[in-house]
Simulated assay, not measured.
Amino acid sequence: MSTPHVIVVMGVAGTGKTTIGPLVAEALGVPYAEGDDFHPPANIAKMSAGTPLDDADRGPWLDAIGAWAHERAGRGGVVSCSALKRGYRDRLRAAAPEVVFLHLTGDRALIERRMAERKGHFMPTALLDSQFATLEPLGADERGVAVDVSGTPEEIAARAADALRVVPAA
């Protein structure tokens, strides 16, 4: 990459955004920000109770992530954010037009198994169906790449970093 991109690692819960994001950031030599840290406490309480967020809940969260991405423009960075709907990605692009999306994709059974195995996370597996129902994959006109999440975190991150290195500058 000639100019460091700001990369949004997106996908449904359990695809490994929090695991793969830092590995990709390290491979590309840019900082990483955990998208969950941008959620207001009310959002975390709602998800912890098993209630999916609605668009009104996500607005301030997306704006905070967009502001971080805007601040990193030209210097690069990686941030995790489910960004399940095209409208959410449009909102992020409005704040930071140069963002590139890394869509982590995978088999539902694999993702559910990984979610069930993780400890201490506020997102219950019961919300996975709502995540898949909400997901709108990247459109052909959106800057980004899709990477399958089968394999080890290191293998996934290597595939992702390789794919991102060839994404042209905006």
Results as ranks from 00 to 15, higher is better:
165 R>G: 13
123 M>R: 10
130 S>G: 05
59 G>V: 13
130 S>A: 15
118 R>P: 04
53 L>R: 05
60 P>M: 09
71 E>D: 15
103 H>D: 03
11 G>E: 02
137 P>D: 04
141 D>Q: 08
90 D>R: 11
155 E>C: 11
53 L>Q: 08
33 A>N: 02
160 A>Y: 10
128 L>E: 11
148 D>R: 14
41 P>D: 06
121 H>T: 06
12 V>M: 03
5 H>G: 06
42 A>K: 14
6 V>L: 01
111 I>N: 01
70 H>P: 00
72 R>T: 00
46 K>D: 12
103 H>P: 00
122 F>W: 12
105 T>I: 11
92 L>E: 07
100 V>F: 03
60 P>F: 06
70 H>W: 07
97 P>Q: 07
125 T>D: 10
147 V>Y: 11
104 L>C: 08
60 P>D: 04
43 N>K: 05
107 D>V: 05
130 S>E: 04
119 K>I: 12
82 S>T: 08
141 D>T: 12
47 M>Q: 03
110 L>A: 14
167 V>Y: 09
153 P>K: 13
53 L>H: 12
50 G>T: 06
29 G>C: 11
12 V>Q: 07
88 Y>F: 14
95 A>M: 13
34 E>N: 15
139 G>N: 11
80 S>I: 02
73 A>L: 09
4 P>K: 11
131 Q>D: 08
54 D>C: 00
163 A>Y: 02
161 A>H: 06
69 A>V: 00
19 T>I: 06
58 R>H: 04
117 E>H: 13
166 V>N: 10
169 A>S: 12
128 L>T: 09
105 T>Q: 13
117 E>M: 14
149 V>E: 06
114 R>P: 04
108 R>C: 03
163 A>I: 01
102 L>F: 05
156 I>R: 10
73 A>P: 00
24 V>G: 13
18 T>D: 14
157 A>D: 09
109 A>C: 00
46 K>G: 07
27 A>Q: 04
35 G>S: 03
143 R>A: 15
151 G>R: 07
81 C>L: 10
40 P>H: 14
165 R>K: 15
94 A>N: 12
163 A>D: 02
43 N>H: 07
110 L>C: 02
95 A>I: 04
112 E>M: 05
114 R>T: 06
56 A>S: 14
13 A>K: 08
134 T>S: 13
168 P>A: 05
64 A>V: 09
59 G>Q: 14
84 L>D: 01
93 R>Y: 09
8 V>M: 07
2 S>R: 13
19 T>R: 02
42 A>S: 15
20 I>A: 07
90 D>S: 07
65 I>S: 02
31 P>M: 12
119 K>N: 13
19 T>P: 04
76 G>C: 07
105 T>N: 10
44 I>L: 14
90 D>C: 02
78 V>F: 09
68 W>R: 02
55 D>H: 04
48 S>A: 10
57 D>M: 03
27 A>F: 09
152 T>I: 06
139 G>A: 15
67 A>T: 15
7 I>N: 09
129 D>Y: 01
84 L>F: 03
8 V>P: 03
